[in-house]
Design a binder for these strands. Structure first.
Lengths: 202, 202
DNA sequence: TCTTGATTTGACCATCTGGTCAAACTCACG
DNA sequence: CGTGAGTTTGACCAGATGGTCAAATCAAGA
């Protein structure tokens, strides 16, 4: 086990390789469906060597999730009280859609965890996420009261944005099976933009 | 193994019990995360007895999925060419939402499979589902051309309906973590109704 | 009631899987 | 270049898991 001193060059490289490999494996097979051997192979390390850097499979998974949570919530964090309400929301939605396109593995990592009842991130949901969402829905309600955007249920508005944007990453196989060669994200951007403009224009 | 004669009373009862148990287990842990022992315990049978009725874990899973696919696609099948376009769509959406509420296990069973790349139902997606969707999107396009509903990308309209309605079943933990005691489906119905009325009213 | 096919089970097996460990090897630095 | 900390690995282990099988039990019709 690496000591608690500053990480060496090799430690940095190998820990990064492991997390990258784990993201691939966990996001495509879920926690239980992934094996340490798979992650080891994918990262180019032997299994004992991998377990020299992380104490357990669970530890890798936990570190991945908590490390990515911040990235995952950043767009919502950035929803700006001082911007134009409709444009702020549309830009949030566009960023979420972009994340589905550029970080589909991350999306599926969380999707896997959530669909199975979130046994390992239940706390983060009802603490961090809940607090952030409450803060932002308060802002949304304010905008609605000011007549800046149409009045809809703010929590369900949130859910709809997550559902719509993450769908393209989480259920990518299905989307591709239907669309064939058509690029999913091209049509998606226009579609969601239209949808939320119509929904939210007062 | 039961012969290929007409199933006995016991066969019917036990096969049903196994499929019911398997739905519970597979939908909450995914295929790989579920064990034959779990399904056996849940169905009240011993493991060898369970394997007397189904040749393998995989066979149970396959039968579940293919058995439920029809139920799952029924609401879309029922989209009626001769009804009022907007009302037909809204009623489809309401039915999908109701299925999320009443059959969340079924929804999560498919979600688990899809998020992991649909290794076991890829064919059904690009055959049955694709054909049905193509048929119905043709109808949607016709309605759009007739000016009965607003013109949007029909495939993405479909995706949005699936994403929005199934979200409440698939990511139920998250929804509940945010909503607290509030009933998800009460707000959801009003929300999606408003949303699709605004989107689709020409 | 007797017989025969259907049903059930305890014991068992091979393989997979997460994890350990001692020994070997490598690297950076004095 | 020598040395000690850091790194790597082959061999191994215990428990979990999917699946088998022969023997025992049960149920329904002749």
């Amino acid at each position: 086990m690496p000591s608690d001193r500053a990480p060496t060059r090799i430690q940095k490289k190998n820990r990064a390789a492991i997390l990258e490999a784990a993201l691939n494996v966990f996001s495509s097979h879920g926690f239980r469906g992934s094996t340490v051997d798979q992650i080891a192979a994918e990262s180019g390390l032997s299994k004992p060597n991998l377990l020299y850097y992380f104490p357990s499979k669970e530890a890798i998974h936990t570190e991945l999730l908590s490390g990515l949570l911040e990235t995952w919530l950043a767009p919502l964090h950035d929803l700006d009280e001082n911007g134009d309400p409709l444009e702020e929301l549309l830009s949030y939605i566009r960023r979420k859609l972009q994340m589905s396109q550029e970080l589909p593995r991350e999306s599926r990592l969380f999707a896997n965890e959530l669909v199975q009842g979130a046994p390992r991130i239940h706390e983060a949901l009802s603490q961090n996420l809940k607090a952030l969402v409450d803060e932002k829905t308060t802002l949304l309600t304010k905008w609605m009261n000011q007549g800046k955007i149409a009045r809809v249920h703010p929590y369900h508005l949130m859910f709809s944005i997550w559902a719509l944007t993450q769908h393209y990453a989480d259920f990518e196989v299905q989307v591709r099976a239907i669309l064939g060669d058509e690029d999913p994200f091209e049509g998606a951007e226009t579609f969601v933009d239209t949808l939320y403009r119509k929904l939210l224009t007062p």
